[in-house]
Design a binder for these strands. Sequence first.
DNA 1: ATCCAGGGGGGCT
DNA 2: AGCCCCCATGGA
Length: 282
Amino acid sequence: VVDYNLHATLDSGQAFRWSRQGDAWTGILGRRWVRLRSTAHHIEATTTRAPEDWRWLTKYLQSEVDLRVVIAQFPDHPFLARAIRAHYGLRLLRQDPWECLASFILSSTKQIAQIKQVVARLCERCGNEVDTPPGEPRAWSFPSATQVAALSQADLRRMGMGFRAPYLLEAARRVSRGDCALTQLSALPLESARDALMELPGVGRKIADCVLLFALGFDEAFPVDVWMMRTLQDRWFPGRRRTLRELVAFADSQFGPQGGYVQQYLFHFSRTLEPELEETRP
DNA sequence: ATCCAGGGGGGCT
DNA sequence: AGCCCCCATGGA
């Protein structure tokens, strides 16, 4: 692989089930345990048994995407240029739609560390145990919508989901019933797919855009969360207050067909940026 | 102790 | 449309 920054990609808040051990990353994809290690021009993958082929992994990692082509479509902006320089090789993953949806329903007003924690508890409580190599800790697959729908709201609250518990439960029920055919949404126009996602409880514009971008392949989707709001406000409209609505509309029109990649570079860079000294204002 | 976290929903004006 | 508050929990 070329132009692939595995650390930035797995640590940029788009997926919540990877853990780092030194230079290696361990996670669960579908029902497989995987360890990934990045070398100069390769990503080395270890599984518990030899797979037929590796497309499930290359698709997830999006390692066949030519990053230079993507970045060539970015708008010219000094802060974005800094983000690209700082984390060159950051990629968007292509996640399972249900796992992505459920994870982001659980994400609202939670820190990334806490999202990982509650997702881990959900998997251990109702996912399927998967094979791990000798000496590795036990691991579980992400539970299907049907597995989640079989739980009670009290079960979910005990995992620390708080007010998100009824949202996740109802979303799981609808998805397991087939009321929202997630995988088929990628064939629709972006706005139709977004509207369908926003029918689900606990799913507004931001979470819908996360699923469109991280799971359904809509590279132009641009989730605007608190970090992106501050970044756009501070770096694109310094000194002039903009409403959330205005910023969403701006992002929609200004960042182009690869806006989702732009967003991920800005998000990760903003989150890892050392706080700059503010000018003192009288 | 106080604030805030990859928001969303509902009510009010 | 914009603004308000509430929702539950834990880490900094």
